[in-house]
Amino acid sequence: MLWSGSGDLVWDAERRRIATDAAGVALWSWNFDTDEIALDERAQTLWGVSSNRAVTFETLSARIHPEDLDRVKTVFTATHKMTGAYEIDFRILLDDSIRWILARGQSEDVGIVNRVMFGVFLDVSDRKQAEEKHEMLAGEMNHRVKNLFALASALTSLAARSTETKAEMAEDLTERLAALGRAHSLVRPGPGQENKALLAELLAVLLAPYDDQTTISRRLRISVPELPVGEASATTLALVVHELATNSVKYGALSAASGTLDVSCTDEDSDLVMLWTERGGPPLDPCQRPKGFGSKLIARSISFQLGGSITYDWPPQGAVVTLRISKTCLAR
Rank of each mutant, 00 (worst) to 15 (best):
R188S: 13
R188V: 10
R188P: 00
P189K: 14
P189L: 13
P189N: 12
P189F: 14
G190R: 06
G190P: 01
G190Y: 01
P191N: 03
P191G: 05
P191W: 00
P191Y: 01
G192Q: 06
G192A: 11
G192D: 12
Q193H: 12
Q193K: 12
E194M: 05
E194L: 11
K196W: 00
K196I: 00
K196Y: 00
A197M: 03
L198K: 13
L198G: 14
L198C: 06
L198M: 14
L198E: 14
L199Q: 06
A200E: 09
A200P: 02
A200I: 05
E201I: 05
E201F: 02
L202M: 15
L202V: 07
L202R: 07
A204R: 15
A204E: 15
A204T: 15
V205I: 14
L206S: 02
L207S: 11
L207V: 10
P209Q: 04
P209L: 01
P209S: 05
Y210N: 07
Y210H: 12
Y210K: 04
D211K: 10
D211G: 13
D211T: 12
D212I: 04
Q213W: 05
T214Y: 04
T214A: 12
T214I: 00
T214R: 10
T215P: 00
T215F: 13
T215G: 07
I216L: 15
I216V: 14
S217I: 10
S217F: 13
S217E: 14
S217M: 13
R218I: 03
R219F: 09
R219A: 13
R219L: 08
R219W: 11
R219G: 15
L220P: 09
L220D: 09
L220Y: 10
L220G: 10
R221I: 06
R221H: 10
R221M: 08
R221P: 01
I222V: 08
I222K: 02
S223Q: 09
S223P: 00
S223R: 07
V224P: 07
V224W: 08
V224A: 09
V224N: 11
P225F: 00
P225S: 02
P225G: 01
P225C: 01
E226T: 04
E226R: 03
E226W: 01
L227K: 03
L227V: 06
L227E: 11
L227I: 08
P228E: 06
P228I: 04
V229T: 06
V229I: 04
V229P: 05
G230A: 04
G230D: 02
E231M: 12
E231A: 13
E231T: 05
A232T: 10
A232R: 12
S233C: 06
S233W: 01
S233G: 07
S233E: 08
A234E: 01
A234M: 01
A234N: 01
T235V: 05
T236V: 15
T236G: 04
L237K: 08
L237S: 09
A238M: 09
A238F: 08
A238L: 09
L239H: 10
L239F: 14
L239Q: 13
L239M: 15
L239R: 12
V240M: 03
V241D: 08
V241G: 06
H242G: 13
H242F: 11
E243P: 03
L244G: 10
L244Q: 14
L244I: 11
L244H: 12
A245T: 01
A245P: 02
A245F: 00
A245D: 02
T246L: 13
N247T: 05
S248N: 07
S248T: 12
K250C: 10
K250Q: 15
K250A: 14
K250G: 10
